[in-house]
């Protein structure tokens, strides 16, 4: 747990609170909550990993690997 992680958590907390109060006011369906939680959880996990200095292999590398597998790129 370092300083950056705390800042990340704080920023996400603000974002989530801001969006949730809008959702509650609008009385949105459950689908919205599910999608929202998915996106935010993904973002939060990645940013916490980044903040901790453990950068997971990014999608650009996966895409490159796929193309190499097909044989488009060397």
């Amino acid at each position: 747990m370092n300083n950056i992680m705390i800042i990340v958590l704080a920023v996400f907390a603000v974002l989530i609170v801001y969006d949730l109060q809008k959702f509650i006011k609008k009385k949105v369906t459950a689908k919205v909550y599910v999608l929202y939680v998915c996106f935010m959880a993904a973002s939060l996990t990645i940013s916490l990993l980044l903040a901790a200095g453990r950068r997971p292999s990014p999608p650009s590398r996966w895409i490159e690997a796929i193309f190499k597998m097909i044989g488009v790129l060397e």
Partner: peptide
């Protein structure tokens, strides 16, 4: 309803 989540994800992804 989804713009906030998507923008956040974009920012994280860009880094």
């Amino acid at each position: 309803t989804m713009t906030g989540a998507i923008t956040t994800f974009c920012v994280v992804l860009s880094i």
